[in-house]
Computed example of a mutant assay.
Amino acid sequence: MTTVNLAKYFGRVGLRDLQPPYTADRDTLKRVMEAQSKSIAFENIDVVQKKSISMDLEDVQKKLVEDVRGGYCFEQNTLLKAVLEEMGYSVEPSLCRVRWGKQDDSAGPNTTFTHLVLKVFTKDGIFLADVGFAGTNSIEPVRMDIGGENQELPEGRFRIVPSKHKGFFVLELLVKGEWRPLYEWRDEKAPLVDQECCNWFSCTNPKGRFTSQFFVCKIIGEERHHILNDQYVIRKGFGANSQVTTDTISDKARLETLVSDVFGIKLEDTSGIDRFLS
C-alpha cells in the first residue's frame, strides 16, 4: 500500500518545521490547508492536453509534489487526505454537486458529482476541509455545524445548512448580503470507486468545464491569482471591498511565463495550452 512521503510533502509546501508527534487539531489542519493552497496551484493543464488524470496516490504524489505541478480537486484533496491520515487524523471523502455559478435547481438537481471534499475529525471537532475549489472556497477548515452560527473566516462569512434537496447539506458564502451556495453533498463516505468514476467524468466530459476551459489558480500572499482562458485576474480582498485587476493574455510565451513564474507550475510539455487564447 502506497503511503505519502511527509518529508517531501512538507518540503514542497514549506512546513519543514512540522515534526512528529503531530497534533491532530484544528490549528494544525489549518496550517496544512493554507500551506498547500499557497504552494500547489489548482490547474487543469493535463485535461486541456487530453491526458488522463489519475487518483492513484503514487501518481498524485509524483505529479503534485515531486514534479512541481498542480492539480484539480480529485488530485489536491486526495493528496491532502493522505497527508492528514499519515499525521493521525481520521478523514472521510465526500462527493459534491457544484452549485457556484449554476442555474437554479429547484425543480431537481442539474449538476452531477464533480467535486471532492474531506470531512476531517480533529481533537477540536469535525471540519470540512477543501483545497480544491479554486477561487471561492475557504482555505481554513469550516466547522461541520449544520445550521449553526455563521463562521467568520479570512475569505469571508461561511455557513453549512440543510439543502433544499432532501438528505443533502450545502456550503454557502455570503456575497454582497446574499447567501450563495458553493456545493452540496450527502453526509456519507464516498467509496473510492465512485470517486474514480466522478474524476473520469470530470476530465473527459466534452461539455464539462475542465475540458472546455483553461484554468489555473493560486493564492499568493493576500491575493488570489487565476487565469481563465485568456484572462489573467488578480483579486485582493473579498466581498464589496475587493480589488480586481484583469489583463488579457495574447500569446503563448506570456502564458508560459505566467504559468511558470507566477503559479509555480513546472511544465515539461506546453503543447496545446494556448488553444483558448483569443
Rank of each mutant, 00 (worst) to 15 (best):
T2K: 09
Y9N: 05
Y9C: 07
V13C: 15
R16F: 08
P20E: 12
P20R: 14
P20L: 12
Y22I: 01
T23Y: 09
T23C: 10
D25W: 09
V32G: 01
V32I: 15
M33W: 09
E34T: 11
K38W: 04
S39N: 06
A41M: 02
N44Q: 10
N44C: 07
I45D: 00
V47R: 09
E58D: 13
L64I: 03
V65C: 03
D67W: 13
V68I: 05
R69K: 02
F74L: 08
N77F: 10
N77R: 06
L80I: 00
L80G: 00
L80K: 01
L84M: 07
Y89M: 07
E92A: 11
P93W: 13
R97M: 04
R97E: 05
W100N: 06
D104C: 06
S106Q: 11
A107V: 06
P109R: 09
P109F: 15
T114N: 13
L118H: 00
V120I: 10
K123D: 10
I126E: 14
I126M: 09
L128F: 13
A129Q: 02
F133N: 00
G135D: 01
S138A: 12
D145M: 03
I146V: 15
E149L: 12
Q151S: 03
E152N: 13
E155Y: 07
G156T: 10
I160N: 00
P162V: 13
L173G: 03
K176T: 06
K176W: 12
G177A: 14
R180N: 12
L182I: 03
E188R: 14
A190N: 02
P191Q: 06
V193F: 13
E196F: 05
W200Q: 07
W200D: 05
K207A: 09
Q213R: 13
F214D: 00
F215M: 14
K218F: 05
I219A: 09
I219D: 05
H225L: 00
G237R: 02
S242K: 15
Q243S: 14
S250F: 15
A253W: 11
A253N: 13
L255S: 07
E256A: 11
S260R: 14
S260H: 14
I265D: 00
D269V: 08
T270V: 13
S271E: 12
R275D: 05
